[in-house]
Nucleic acid binder design. Structure first.
Lengths: 146, 146
DNA sequence: GTATATATATGTAAACTACACATAGATATG
DNA sequence: CATATCTATGTGTAGTTTACATATATATAC
């Protein structure tokens, strides 16, 4: 991949923490919130534990700051609730649980993701060479979206 | 201007132009560049036309500024080339064509997208209730990614 | 001649991302 | 007991992205 004399001024678009020098990368966007909600739907949990669980969604080297900040914001938004848990050894944990609003958010997200999948199908069909006729781009992808 | 108090106050994260008040939306991220490259791989084109074509990828009400700025940046990055076309009626068009580097970028992107699809599969499997055992989250999704 | 469609481009506020850094309790080790 | 380490939560901030508003210019329609 020739990313020699690349982008902004002269270098490949390196984001602050970008692992991918080319910038060609499809990474989760706005995924952290849904993933947290999904985890909390099953079991109540806390930041430190959620951080480990989220790795299975591509948040490999999750930065703690990002997670904790997101959790606090989620609580302000009313999609999770929290309370301190001090009845054990070790530092206090802020235990989170999902709210009804959080569950609704999750459902909305899942629906949105289906639309996204259709977009991906459209992309791949075009990428693999099948021309996109003018009357099938609207509902393409249903047959193999999953 | 500390954005600590500003942007995250009391409402679900509303983006500036977000049509979705809840913020629960899976929208293309970094998709504009690949979609442009994909279009240019088939036919050379120019901004105004690309803007219309990109609608089929979920860039419904594409903002012209975003597209033109992206195109200029792509040229700096070496993944497209351009030249003015004045031999016709109407305002001059800046005609773009894809470069070899652009094709390589596209291939890299497509590969990255496959990984993304696996992440989506993981999400949906968890969302629909199938528990994720501790030893299948690493290579899940290969069998039905496409 | 002026209103409209075509076509490209810039200015700027807001928001996102991710690293670096800070804080603090509990436990292990010498 | 001093201090190192693990667990756990949080803040500061630079760099980048996003998207709207706005500006410019050419050709055609009326």
């Amino acid at each position: 991949m020739s990313n020699e004399e690349k982008n902004r001024e002269d270098l490949p678009r390196r984001r602050s923490g970008g692992k991918d020098p080319s910038g060609a990368e499809a990474r989760p966007r706005n995924w952290l919130v849904p993933v947290i909600l999904l985890s909390l739907r099953d079991w109540n949990s806390y930041g430190y534990e959620l951080m480990e669980r989220s790795t299975r969604f591509g948040f490999d080297a999750m930065n703690p700051g990002t997670l904790y900040r997101t959790l606090r914001q989620m609580e302000k938004d009313g999609i999770v609730e929290s309370s301190w848990e001090t009845s054990r050894g070790g530092p206090a944990r802020r235990m989170y649980s999902i709210t009804d609003a959080g569950k609704a958010y999750l459902d909305f997200w899942a629906k949105s993701l289906e639309q996204y999948q259709r977009t991906m199908d459209t992309f791949f069909r075009m990428y693999t060479g099948q021309p996109l006729s003018d009357d099938d781009e609207k509902d393409s992808g249903e047959e193999n979206s999953r």
